[in-house]
């Protein structure tokens, strides 16, 4: 890690939702998978698509479009599942497409401007302008807060 701090650039994975490009650090990404059969889990928020069998590990899947309140569309061949690994758990994120891996100079990351489209601002940790591309950095800890059951079913 100390090396990383010394470096000027960090590798980011760039993916697409609607017409926007988003980015997350390569470190948290475990892998990128094609769509596979998802088992629904009842009584969960609509953005939780269900669980998949990821090489023997039951992994929950979140549809990022729905998580951000964007319009939904039919899945196609471009759709990818990005498996991210946070502190306590792994989650797969459904995105429209995973484009490439790029080096981003740390200096070029700016705090988010007041309005960045329709995505709730708490999910965003910053923006990067690279040539003519605008990349939105995700705050994964906020996007993927563990779901606890808070309802009258609790006893």
């Amino acid at each position: 890690m100390t090396e990383l701090v010394g470096q000027d650039t960090v590798k980011f994975i760039v993916f697409q939702l609607l017409d926007k490009e988003y980015a997350m650090e390569v470190d948290v990404v475990e892998g990128i998978e094609k769509l596979m059969s998802i088992t629904r889990v009842p009584k969960t928020p609509s953005y939780v698509k269900g669980v998949i069998n990821l090489r023997g590990v039951v992994t929950p899947i979140v549809d990022l479009r729905e998580r951000f309140g964007l319009e939904t569309k039919e899945m196609d061949d471009n759709n990818r599942i990005i498996i991210v690994s946070l502190q306590d758990f792994e989650v797969g994120l459904i995105v429209d497409a995973a484009n490439d891996v790029i080096d981003i100079p740390l200096r070029s990351i700016e705090p988010q401007p007041e309005v960045v489209g329709s995505v709730e601002s708490e999910f965003i940790s910053g923006v990067v302008k690279l040539d003519k591309r605008l990349l939105v950095m995700l705050n994964l800890d906020k996007v993927l807060q563990p779901l606890k059951r808070v309802s009258s079913d609790e006893y």
Binding site: P42, V51, V58, P60, E90, V91, P146, R149
Partner: peptide
């Protein structure tokens, strides 16, 4: 287990493959 992301889903105690 369903993992730590999906904590206590109602009436589901776990999963299997």
């Amino acid at each position: 287990s369903l993992g730590n992301y999906l904590q206590s889903v109602f009436a589901i105690s776990g999963a299997t493959i």
